[in-house]
Amino acid sequence: MLDLLSRIATERSDDAFRRLFEHFAPRIAGYMMRHGADAATAEELAQETLLTVWCKAGLYSPDKGTPVTWIFTIARNLRINSLRKEVCWQQLSNEQAEAIPAEDETPDNATFVRQRQTRVQAVLATLPADQREVITLAFIDGLPQRDIAERLSLPLGTVKSRMRLAYQKVRDALKDLK
């Protein structure tokens, strides 16, 4: 996936875009449908997400990094704006960067992001089922902590601690890459 994204950014590869689209479009559409979109709207938002990846990748210089997290963040923001009809307070990484003093920026080159993504993947593969369930409800179903607690009949504090424990594992796995 990371290779596809960097080929889209650097070579403007149609083939890479097609393969990225074929993998992600049905999944993004599924994500949108979980949030109440009908099939046509879900498809439209999936196309818009991936077209935005294509366009943003073209604006991005390869030495600055790879648009690796964009698929999720663009889909997330479209969901908040288009389906929830709320203000989307989450900025995309390249928009956010300007607000952070330069000396505090972490290196964001392609290799760096790739290593991080690989490790996140490894952590998720071994995550206890109860933690994975909670983070999936947060990230994919977009449920607030209170709703997750209700859905799983758990105290709110348990939901928070499962999220924290899951992230702690990710944080530990990424520590030496800082």
Partner: peptide, 23 residues
């Protein structure tokens, strides 16, 4: 880093959970 988790969970969503028609 947390957004990487979102990307990964999205990537791993089963294809069966979504609409049938090819886009």
């Amino acid at each position: 880093d947390m957004e990487l988790i979102g990307t990964e969970l999205l990537r791993e969503l089963p294809a069966t959970s979504v609409c049938e028609r090819k886009m």
